[in-house]
């Protein structure tokens, strides 16, 4: 079992695997996006309070969920790299950061575009918004660390420690709306059997979330391939790949 994992987690194997899987994920993601956009913009009815402006939810909520999900993937991969010295852990963690940062940015920006017409302000320093902003800084800090440290192994180690320490922010983001009074409302979907959302609005939201998730998985695989190529550029298998027939 452990043997097999090690073989799978070796860079050449993972590279081949990622190459095989990513086109499929891109395809599934495109279909989900088409369905989710139709569902969110056309099929879902307007909200009884917020009217059409509530359709921003179909971008905002998947981005916000992904911003936390990607962070957990990044920290877990970092921990695997740190504890078991699995090179693929370091590589995946590094590939996660720009993606997570972009989802966090989207969640903040679309939240702002939603807050202006509904709340009456672009931004407030309440616990939810502030902790999400800290998440963006954690991602940016991780990326800065990666580019500042020349030695890749040292960079991976420092980054993993930062990512693991930053994990404490994730429950804070999630529970901020319960622990403190915030301008941001509470969670809509805490349990799937009785969400505070009409089913006609919920299905497109789940569709868009799956679309975001598959897109993340597909792009993560491509980014991981790039990182593998850079990590392993002096090995024979990468040289063969680079001079192979598919490249030119």
């Amino acid at each position: 079992m452990f043997e097999r994992f090690h073989k799978f987690a070796s860079p050449p194997h993972f590279h081949a695997f990622a190459r095989m899987l990513s086109p499929w994920l891109f395809g599934v993601s495109a279909l989900l996006f088409a369905a989710g956009l139709f569902g969110g913009l056309v099929y879902a009815p307007a909200d009884y309070q917020q009217g059409e402006s509530f359709r921003i939810i179909y971008i905002h909520v998947p981005s916000a969920w992904l911003s936390m999900f990607v962070y957990m993937v990044m920290a877990s991969a970092g921990a695997v790299g740190l504890i078991w010295k699995v090179k693929m852990g370091d590589i995946v963690a590094r590939a996660c950061a720009p993606l997570g940062a972009s989802f966090t940015f989207l969640a903040l920006a679309t939240g702002s575009l939603w807050g202006k017409p509904m709340w009456g302000t672009w931004w407030v320093w309440d616990a939810r918004l502030t902790s999400e902003l800290i998440l963006l800084f954690l991602y940016l800090g991780y990326m800065a660390l990666q580019s500042a440290i020349e030695d890749r192994r040292a960079a991976a180690r420092a980054g993993a420690v930062l990512a693991i320490v930053g994990v404490v922010n994730i429950p804070i983001i999630h529970y901020s709306v319960e622990w403190w009074s915030t301008l941001h409302q509470g969670a809509t979907i805490t349990k799937l059997d009785r969400p505070s959302m009409d089913i006609s609005m919920l299905i497109p939201l789940l569709g868009m979330t799956l679309a975001f998730k598959t897109l993340f998985a597909a792009v993560l695989l491509v980014r991981t391939r790039c990182e593998i190529l850079e990590f392993e550029q002096h090995t024979n298998w990468v040289r063969e790949l680079a001079t192979g027939p598919e490249v030119r």
Binding site: E52, S53, L229
Partner: peptide
Amino acid sequence: GGYATYVWSSYALAAVVLIWNVVQPLRRE
């Protein structure tokens, strides 16, 4: 419903960010 600026700029921003997310690593590879 009068919220065109906010709704469409959110979707446009998402499109730009997501497409860049896809294109940039493919080109880098």
